[in-house]
Design a binder for these strands. Structure first.
Length: 227
DNA sequence: AATGTACGCAACCGCAACGAC
DNA sequence: CGTCGTTGCGGTTGCGTACAT
């Protein structure tokens, strides 16, 4: 039976003090954070590793953008949520400077209500996928056959992927969208969905939008992780 | 001014995934 | 292949503050 990390005697819980923050920041600057479990002890903090990791990733990390969400960010969250569902960390990788926790909170406190309100007036259609995937909120935003992924219109010929594909959550990679063709084969991002592919002259602005939003952003975050 | 209520956000909890052994 | 330790994720909680009465 494993003991939950915060149940160790003498470990502090609750809000972090500025002093604790400072200790954590300076320790990570010096030594990094290879081992969260060992970190608090080495840094001289009376916290569990989990708490330190959370504090760092959600609050102290230098690349965090604080303050209100812009309209663009808001729209992106809505769009991403349609595709990814409650996968906040996946959404966060596509919103530079925002944390999963922040997005999750923002969703629950602002956007959820907003969408519910819109759903009440179910004749309202928005350009959810911004430009050309008009989505009726009351109908299309409700997840269908997967946990959270709404079906998008499909049109597939066997040699090419439709720009309109079904986003699924492939078991092999939690952080990347994979696209499924009519045969149900998964392809990881970048395959023939790239607007630069020879056979993809049909890919319109929308695909470029999605490409930018998911694939490029995804690659950036992936590169970041690999560094 | 005092009290009650609603809201927003930081932090916690439990679980699953993953890697090492 | 199973076990254990660690990390990351999503759901939930609870505190502080703003607002209403």
């Amino acid at each position: 039976m494993r003991v939950p990390c915060c149940e160790h005697m003498g470990q502090k819980k609750g809000p972090w003090t500025p002093e604790e923050d400072q200790i954590l920041i300076s320790y990570i600057r010096k030594y990094g954070h290879d081992n969260w479990r060992a970190l608090p002890k080495q840094a001289g903090l009376l916290r569990c590793g989990k708490s330190c990791r959370l504090r760092w990733t959600n609050y102290l990390r230098p690349d965090i953008k604080r303050g209100n969400f812009s309209r663009e960010e808001e729209e992106n969250i809505i769009k991403l949520h349609q595709i990814l569902g409650n996968r906040w960390s996946a959404i966060a990788t596509r919103l530079p400077g925002r944390t999963d926790n922040e997005i999750k909170n923002f969703w629950h406190t602002h956007l959820k209500k907003k969408l519910q309100h819109i759903q009440l007036n179910n004749d309202i259609t928005i350009n959810a996928c911004t430009k050309s995937f008009p989505v009726n909120l009351s109908r299309d935003l409700i997840p269908q056959n997967s946990v959270h992924a709404p079906m998008l219109p499909q049109k597939v010929n066997e040699n090419s992927y439709s720009p309109v594909v079904k986003a699924t959550r492939p078991p092999e990679d939690d952080h990347m969208i994979s696209f499924q063709n009519a045969q149900g084969m998964h392809r990881k991002h970048g395959a023939s969905l790239s607007p630069r592919d020879d056979d993809n002259s049909h890919i319109n602005e929308d695909m470029e939008f999605w490409f930018n939003l998911f694939i490029k952003a995804g690659d950036q975050s992936q590169n970041k992780l690999e560094k």
